[in-house]
Design a protein around this nucleic acid. Structure first.
Lengths: 221, 221
DNA sequence: TAGATTGTTAATCGATTAACAATC
DNA sequence: TAGATTGTTAATCGATTAACAATC
């Protein structure tokens, strides 16, 4: 029997975006020996109570107890399991400029099951160095290394103009999932998944909201 | 007369996320003197044609011409205007570690109308230095500087454990919009907008998709 | 018990997609 | 003209929220 979700509640992208929020909250504020309820989380996150309840129901192994809620420690483990934080995924990163080296250095990814093994770049002054104890190899070795180590995840932090070419090399090396930080639309074969980390889009949402606020302020009242 | 949208097509978060994608595509591939059609963009981005058409109709000042499409140069300007890329928003950043300095150094934000003026940190070895020509001041000056310069946007790249406190200081300094890179839920008054740059969530979506791929591969056909 | 909370079914809401007339 | 594309109204789809019985 496979571990499919019991109910028909879909594993939507939205759900996958909310779960890490719950997890942060639980880890920071919940007494792991105690219980926590959906209304409590909903209130803290300013989300609808039913939504949180459904989300928790979808991932909780043991369910909650009426009147008391969910065992916090178990719930944390359940969410982590659901999110796959206990399976390690190995990744490589192409582009070791500011952003690339920030990602290479970031300790927090371990927690999410992401292990960035090494970086690739084409600049001679970077190749051969190491960042946060991880080697930087020449970009020409990218395809080969991915193949040999059977890496499935590639992270792209090269300038926009190189991104497609780097992406093609990753795909040629057997990469199945690409996390793209370059502000371009990448074309990949159907069997490859792309996740765009769209900072411009984030920024736009923020500045639009801000513009509204400022307008209201000007209008008075 | 205010520049509200003509139609009732809502300015959804989704729309705001798609527009930068169109913009990238247009800038990279469109002949600015020529014309571009919704079906063409839709095809390149693998989106529904009607959706693109509606999106373009919502932002285009002059509309498109049946059979020919939209004037590419004008469309680029319209999208940029709609997204507010021509209004400069000044921002400060708290936390000048790897990620913070990557953001401080990133040239691309200009294009989006974001101007990061300076950084703040509490580490003595960082305070007084400058990153990409931008000063790093002591975090204790954050509130004061925001007030004096009437900064509206604060970017948080401090460790999770400091994020709430830094956020509070920003709010006290009159910040109205917070771009939060720390993996915690921040509590702010109603008049402040938060945009969480949720890398963990992105990563989860990616690794879930990857897991599906790998499962299918194992099952064979 | 009374009351809080869970889990689930039904109603609502909003975004996407389909259908189609208008236009160049 | 014929055909591609626009703009818009209607239908569909999916996610969120409301309502409510079950439970401790």
């Amino acid at each position: 029997m496979s571990n499919k979700t019991k109910s028909s509640y879909a594993i939507s992208k939205q759900l996958l975006n909310r779960l890490p929020l719950y997890l942060n909250y639980l880890k920071d504020f919940a007494d792991r020996e105690g219980y926590i309820s959906a209304p409590l989380i909903a209130n803290a996150m300013k989300l609808n109570e039913v939504q949180v309840r459904k989300d928790l129901a979808a991932v909780s192994s043991s369910g909650g107890k009426p009147k008391t809620g969910f065992a916090a420690g178990q719930l944390i483990r359940d969410i982590e399991k659901f999110l796959g934080y206990d399976n390690v995924n190995e990744a490589v990163i192409a582009g070791t400029g500011h952003l690339g080296s920030a990602l290479l250095s970031y300790k927090g990814f371990d927690e999410y099951g992401l292990k960035i093994l090494m970086g690739f770049d084409l600049k001679d002054e970077l190749v051969g160095t190491s960042i946060a104890g991880k080697q930087v190899l020449h970009i020409d070795k990218l395809e080969d290394v991915c193949k040999r180590l059977k890496i499935h995840i590639g992270i792209i932090t090269v300038p926009a103009s190189f991104a497609q070419e780097v992406c093609d090399r990753m795909v040629a090396g057997g990469i199945l999932a690409v996390w793209n930080f370059a502000p371009v639309h990448l074309t990949v074969p159907d069997h490859v998944v792309i996740q765009n980390e769209n900072m411009a889009a984030s920024l736009v949402v923020l500045s639009k909201h801000l513009a509204e606020k400022l307008e209201k302020k000007e209008e008075g009242i």
